[in-house]
Amino acid sequence: MSRTQGNTRRHAGLIVRLAAMAVAMFGFGYLLVPLYDIFCEITGIGGRVNDEPASLAQLSGTPVDPDRRITVEFVASVNQQAPWEFRPNVVTMEVVPGELYNTAYFARNLTERGLVGTAVPSVSPGEAARHFLKIECFCFTEQAFAASEGRDMDVMFIVDPALPAHLDRVTLSYTFIETPRAAAAGNAR
């Protein structure tokens, strides 16, 4: 009787445990996706804190300093292949923290067919992201454009007075991207 024979049953428990470990680690790879989102929301990486509309109730209650001025810069970019014209109507604004401001971006569909786009916001520096509250923004929803249509899209924001004192300049950047086909089809457009 060879020593190799009749051993498989003896090994079964360990094999099952090791295989389960491999399957669990495959799942862990996917678990990293939500973990990463949570991590980014905590740290403000990528300006991700304001994916949902903010409300005035989220203001920190820090006393307003009427003499403080913050320069807000507006940046627009499109993927090099994306068929959009996209720019901010105003390039910079001087704002007082704690007050509500309105501005707009302009976008035009450069094709002869309907397009659906999504604007992805980013605030830099990263530590300013959580203090830049967008009350209303075209980036919260998908934007549908008819062929060659162009229009203004509004942004309403407040800079929280709790913005760290050493910051006097905040950049709001949008990248305008054609919504992936499958996602757009899912919205039955």
Binding site: F28, Y30, I177, P180
Partner: peptide, 25 residues
């Protein structure tokens, strides 16, 4: 398996409309 998961996400991003790594989604 973690690498396998990561490259599977690439595959579904490319062909099945997921957005693990696409900022548009």
């Amino acid at each position: 398996p973690v690498l396998a998961g990561g490259v599977t996400m690439l595959l579904t991003d490319q062909y099945f409309g997921t957005s693990f790594f696409q900022i548009a989604g």
